[in-house]
Write a protein that binds this DNA or RNA. Sequence first.
RNA 1: GCGCCCGUAGCUCAGUUGGAUAGAGCACCUGGCUUCGAACCAGGUGGUCGGCGGUUCGAAUCCGUCCGGGCGCGCCA
Length: 593
Amino acid sequence: MKTELEDLLARALESLQGTLLHTPVERSAIVVERTRDAQHGDFACNIALRLAKSAGRKPTELAAAIVAALPRSPLLARAEVAGAGFINLYLAGDAQRDALPRVFEQGERYGTSQAGAGARVLVEFVSANPTGPLHVGHGRQATYGATLAKLLQATGHDVHREYYINDAGRQVDILTVSVWVRYLQAGGIGLPFPVNGYRAGYVQGIATRLAVACGAALQRPAAAVLAGLPPDASEGEAEATAGKKKELYIDALIARMRELVGAAAYEEVLELALAAMLADIREDLAAYGVEFEQWTSERALARSGAVDCMLGRLAAQQQTYTQEGALWLRSSAFGDTEDRVLVRANGQQTYFAPDLAYHLDKRARGYARLIDVWGADHHGYIARMRAGLVALGAPGDCLEVCLMQFVSLYRGGEKVPMGKRDGQFVTLRQLREEVGNDACRLFFLMRSHEQHLDFDLELAKSRSNDNPVYYLQYAHARVASVMKQLAARGLQYDAAVALANLGALDGAHEAAVLTAISRYPELIAQAAASRAPHLLVHFLRDLAQAFHTWYNAAQFIVEDDAIRNARLALALATQQVLRNGLGLLGASAPETM
RNA sequence: GCGCCCGUAGCUCAGUUGGAUAGAGCACCUGGCUUCGAACCAGGUGGUCGGCGGUUCGAAUCCGUCCGGGCGCGCCA
């Protein structure tokens, strides 16, 4: 529709060449946009304003000439000059109503396109460390990533969803030792819990399973555990002094556990803890309706040799150097603010090294475009990852990072504290159980991901008219209800009669609904291209609003066969679009509420 | 100090990538169910788009600067 109108304008401009215009106008400069206000027609074009200067004409004069030169088209009812020199385009009624047969033909595919031309895109999201359950922040990332992936699929991309499991590195050791200490404590060993350990309740749960699995075999006396360990930080000690102390202590404790229980038993505890955490995360996401094509394990990646291979490649290209015993990447040569360590002086790799190898692996698997969804606190890491990719010969802009701003929970105007120290954070599971998946999805998606989100639990739970979730679902259920009422009156919807009489849909309220329906495919394209699922939520609200307004102003089930069927067709099309949209958002579209 | 994000109605936020009179929801006020679901609708009140400069036909949007808020700046992950 849009491009056809733009073509019409292009032909008009061509015919003005040599008279009013002297330089040819590029096709890409001719842009037609939906109007904000129905008084300005259906579409508007600002080309006259843009060309006025170079043509040396007044914008209104130029616009009038373009309008006069516009070829006839069945699409267009009329065009007029308005304001400072806008060209307002009014669609012919038939063109407007053409959206309906399309909706019925395409059904659940209505709104999708092939704009992506099958381009392979890898969307990596959540990727939370398997050291604890998902919290509300992960919930937002999961929701955003899942919906973005669906939007990309809907616009013809070949999308692959992936979760990167950070199951290697120190945080897993900390989890392991935390579980062991809880296990010792439960066995009656008087042992302080390390300040830097994971102290939330789930660790206790894993310790219990450990006791079931191995009995008392891993119990050791407190004296043996603590002998010669450096002092731990004290509870509530200032970060400046505590930071070093608690890390030295926990590292020593990890080493001590290894020597006391042996490497094999240590691995078993680690595997048990990891498997428990991962199962919890997978189950949580599945219950939330968020799925991944692939879960990539950092440990498996390391074992495959991919990290060493990458380091070898960098070294061969002289992109690394050794300084003070550590191996550095020359990232500052590729847009980062400084060089970064890949391998520490103690021989251990940093988090960065396997992560970079992972991104290289994604490219090697044929994904030209990599989209990562990260928490906003990781923004400083973007330049580093890009620099790494560039150093490895990939274009830096192949990686696109969507940064998610933070979530604050409110309960009745009162901010819910989410201190991570005592494990006092709210989990995604708790949130879902309290407000339901649908409300969760929509509340997470309502705001731009670049915007800090205030999530009000009371509002999300309320079954009242101030809850936007119900507003959308109600519109959908309302159509179902009308159809039931129709059957109850012994009538049937006749699609053939409806499509032959769409001309009966000539009121302003009907036009508003029609406009929204016909705009839906454009909206999907835009939401996908700008990585902005929130646009879809707002669109659905507008559509529901237009529908509710019409519903209140008109009777659908009327005597006249032509009018009744035409109106039902519009109602059913509305329902289809609502269902499609809610489906992309991962929310249900109930028939009754 | 440097970097990223943000600042729009009393509150929470949109704003079609520079367009026309800046829009929604909540809150507040008025009205609408013997008629397809009132979980709805119609109308009203409410704005120096953080401040000041600049770019141009035109700025909430782009540039500069200042103010205010969030986050980051490890051989942690």
